[in-house]
């Protein structure tokens, strides 16, 4: 019975890694769509979200069944419990990429008059900070790497700062027409979603830290 349990645990592990790569792809594509204002890539992200949502539900179900059947304890319990939460963070990241992509679709046809080089550079930089954060979170999960998981969140402040800079720069423009306001607000929102992806990645890292160490303090230190 215990072998069956460990086999099923391994299966769930593979499912989470697969879900992680789907989310990773969505993040990369939504950032590219955002920077390029590319509606086609945005649509691809939106279409791909269903698969992420399905993974979430199917993994959650497997976790529940496994817990009911085997009443895991110690690291197995921490692991299954953490997975149930990690997949919610992944699913949420998927939703954020959809939000960004919907904004891209809304704005793509409009003149990119506010997306000057400075703003685009800031968005690129933000993407360059957020992407590795997610990669690290997923890598630490995959390799059960305590050290890597503990490194997450270091670029958080910088991402926050860039997001504020984007906000300030966009609103530094003179008088806004109604159209301008819609455009600028959407860009600010999208950059905010991007920042949230970074936060969710840090949350994943904390869960990895918890199931590896068993130390609940990780959640208290970083809030």
């Amino acid at each position: 019975m215990r072998e069956t349990f460990h086999h099923k645990l391994e299966e769930i592990n593979e499912d989470v890694i697969l879900m992680g790569s789907l989310v990773q792809e969505a993040v990369y594509n939504s950032i590219e769509a955002f920077i390029e204002m590319n509606a086609d890539i945005a649509q691809k992200v939106i279409d791909g979200d269903e698969k992420i949502n399905e993974s979430d539900i199917s993994i959650e179900e497997k976790c529940i069944v496994l817990q009911a059947e085997h009443q895991p304890v110690a690291k197995d319990l921490r692991y299954l419990h953490s997975i149930s939460i990690i997949i919610k963070h992944l699913e949420r990241i998927g939703d954020l990429t959809v939000n960004i992509s919907k904004i891209v679709k809304r704005l793509a046809r409009e003149k990119k008059k506010y997306l000057d080089k400075e703003i685009i550079d800031l968005l690129i930089e933000m993407g360059n900070l957020v992407k590795p954060e997610l990669n690290r979170a997923l890598e630490s999960f995959k390799n059960k790497d305590l050290k890597l998981a503990s490194k997450l969140g270091k670029s958080d402040d910088m991402v926050d700062e860039i997001q504020k800079m984007i906000f300030r720069k966009l609103f530094a423009f003179h008088k806004f027409s109604e159209e301008d306001i819609k455009f600028v607000t959407n860009i600010v929102l999208a950059s905010r979603y991007l920042e949230r992806i970074g936060d969710q990645s840090v949350n994943i890292g904390q869960r990895v830290l918890y199931f590896l160490s068993g130390d609940y303090k990780v959640f208290h230190d970083n809030v």
Binding site: P72, V73, A74, K75, D76, L77, R78, G214, D215
Partner: peptide, 14 residues
């Protein structure tokens, strides 16, 4: 049952 100190305990209960 959530975080035993000793690996032998962990191995037994899991």
């Amino acid at each position: 049952f959530t975080n035993p100190r000793d690996k032998r305990t962990e191995d037994y209960i899991t």
